[in-house]
Amino acid sequence: MTEIVRTETSLRAWLMSDRPQSRRQASLGRLYAGWRTFARNRLAIVGLAIIVALVLVAIFADALAPYSPYQGDLTRTRLLPPSAAHWLGTDDQGRDILSRIIHGSRITLLVVVLVAILAAPIGLLVGTVAGYAGGWIDAALMRVTDIFLAFPRLILALAFVAALGPGIENAVIAIALTSWPPYARIARAETLTVRRADYIAAVELMGASSWRIVFRHIMPLCLASVIVRVTLDMAGIILTAAGLGFLGLGAQPPMPEWGALISNGRLYVLDQWWVAAAPGAAIFIVSLAFNLLGDGLRDALDPKAGS
């Protein structure tokens, strides 16, 4: 027992050392310090816990869902209010709403992850190239960015989906196409601050190509702020995807996408309110979790940025 305590304290001392012996110790120490700031923020921990729970629910959806999300009993279980058998009630097809929400978590996660891995690299690339190259390349790229920023995001996504056709894949593409501009802005701002730094000049002197400098030396530095921003945007992404689903332009039936579930429940909302209430609450909780997590990350990684 005392052994463990001693190794624990010495590990902390090693992490908190103000004279790190290696680069790895330094970066681990920085991570640890960030984690301590983050962990002090209780709401951020709650957010993180909800998201971990969401991931687990998505992974074990088959085991967790009490009923099939697609098959209902039209004759006996149609539009039942919440009860012991169906905790959140049933929908117009007699399907268990809880089971549909549990399976819908997969779609929500998929959308969030896909949009993030599509939009973040675009923004990162545009921003770092613009910031590093400067001149007319910068001017042109930033003008394009501004044009996208000047657009109302949901309307632009709607127009894209209209052109591409409804469906979850196209919804993801449309949201990604409208999400990258803020990331480009941030990455460019970060690039501008490091571009004139001595170590970049040193790599330049060693004859590294511009692409290599951008990819190996500048992008990694911009990553942290872009990740924070993406986390803060996740709620927005979820809400946009749900909005598209609600308008019938995202996931198509019978997929249990949460926005589409609300759209379906809308027809009965005045009498069977629970059909629309539960999936909306799910969207709200998950968006809230991402917002809490994003706020916590921002405060931990960049104490200045908080307000």
Binding site: L239, A242, G243, A276, G280, I283, F284, S287
Partner: peptide
């Protein structure tokens, strides 16, 4: 965090 269309409903 809240979907506006849901809150409206």
């Amino acid at each position: 965090s809240v979907p506006i269309f849901w809150l409206g409903l």
